[in-house]
Design a protein around this nucleic acid. Structure first.
Lengths: 246, 246
DNA sequence: CGCTGTGTTGAGACGTCTCAAAGGAAGTGG
DNA sequence: CCACTTCCTTTGAGACGTCTCAACACAGCG
């Protein structure tokens, strides 16, 4: 992990009303009028270089962030040095919600590639969402979605075996790429095997072996970080036939 | 699991301003004035008998619930029949936040003992929190806290071994009992070994063995569901000395 | 071109699961 | 209140999956 965080503030003010990520992002489902008011809210954009952090555990919480370009991981650290990736975030997704509870962040958000986020000052968000019902509602949905997502991960970590976890991960990535207009079957992972492993509660070797196994069985074609899903149905079958485990 | 849900609606209207759980519940930190307005919001109380559900996955989302007495578990079901406990909730804690995102619940909430909740109609909550800044802020904190808590569980499931998980679980329970004015060292678990195991991603036998081991080592005294913590520092040490694992 | 970070593969160790049996607690109905 | 059933818990022995350690291959980058 690299040191602090050389941050570039981009003079450009973000504009939700003109952003092509609306359907994926906080403004989803809001009316035209409401959308225009959102533009008041969103502050400057901020560029984050690969491997640098958007915020770190312990930082004072001041804003949440919408990913405009690129991707991130979030991870938490235990006192003894162990750490775990708690999520991977893609364009349109919101970062920083963990900070609201204690007014300081509880995890690190690190860019997996050169990225750009829209800064949404939290005080302003609360203020505006008292006036704009649609915004309030969407914001609550975003938080709730995060909770539901986390439950899914808990399910995965608590009751699936290695290959099931990886299959679930790949299908999830595929679905999220699809939602962003990319191919459901072919994509480029931005994270390392180690990061995937940390997220899935596995060692990198186990992830690697599972990839190899999927390849042998003709489910996917793997070339480093480039993934092609050859048999999505087969991957789904892996998940449903409860392959034993806990 | 028992059938549907024989629910008793209690005529008593709940009153936050007079409830002794304020410091643990949604109203925490709100002003006297704000608190009085909260009383408009909270609907009737509802009693749920042991083993019966407050809501089930798929139910239309209409309200969130504050636990007034008793305790609950939440669990999610996978298509193949596997299920996993995603959390245990005690008095003052909020249930149902998962429902906001899709307007229908994504997990089951089941009473571990005869319990009572305050029903907080969600539409009203949104409405009132547009007027009462303190309420809005607290509600957001509650949701955020849930996200942070989930990350902790992911950490536990992804990177701890059996005994560490159980130690973390016991310390967490102890801390929550303490916050409710009970002894930090002696308490009664409401859930079975199987439910603990499901929550911790372990089989019930493994949970049982870990309990026995703790007892042998003089860390706790276990008699069925009655737990006495004899060496809290020892349990904490278990967590920090990274005992290997993933 | 060599360096460094990343990914693959193998063999053995270790932790948790599975299956099985039995004891104990709690609840039910006579 | 006791006998009965049922559920819950404990414990053991062996199976199985993932981890650990180690060596090597490969890609990207200066």
């Amino acid at each position: 992990m690299k040191a602090a965080a050389p941050i570039t503030i981009n003079g450009l003010k973000a504009s939700c009303s003109q952003c092509n990520l609306v359907e994926l992002c906080l403004p989803f489902g809001m009316s035209e009028d409401d959308l225009n008011r959102l533009d008041e809210l969103v502050g400057a954009r901020r560029k984050i270089k690969r491997q640098h952090s958007l915020y770190r555990a312990g930082d004072t919480f001041e804003a949440i962030y919408a990913i405009r370009a690129g991707s991130f991981k979030t991870d938490v650290l235990l006192e003894d040095g162990r750490d775990q990736v708690t999520g991977f975030q893609m364009t349109g997704e919101i970062l920083g919600l963990d900070g609201i509870s204690t007014e300081s962040h509880s995890c690190n958000a690190i860019a997996l590639e050169d990225s750009e986020v829209c800064v949404i000052p939290y005080a302003k968000l609360e203020e505006l969402s008292r006036e704009v019902e649609g915004l309030q509602h969407q914001f609550h949905k975003v938080m709730s979605r995060e909770i539901v997502r986390d439950h899914g991960v808990m399910m995965l970590l608590g009751s699936m075996r290695a290959e099931e976890r990886l299959a679930a991960f790949l299908l999830n990535m595929s679905q999220r790429f699809t939602a962003r207009g990319f191919s459901p079957a072919e994509f480029h992972l931005r994270m390392t095997r180690d990061e995937i492993g940390s997220y899935l509660g596995l060692k990198l070797e186990t992830v690697s072996r599972a990839f190899s196994r999927f390849q042998e069985e003709g489910l996917v074609s793997v070339q480093q970080k480039h993934i092609r899903i050859l048999d999505a149905a087969g991957l789904k079958r892996l998940l449903q036939h409860q392959s034993g485990s806990r």
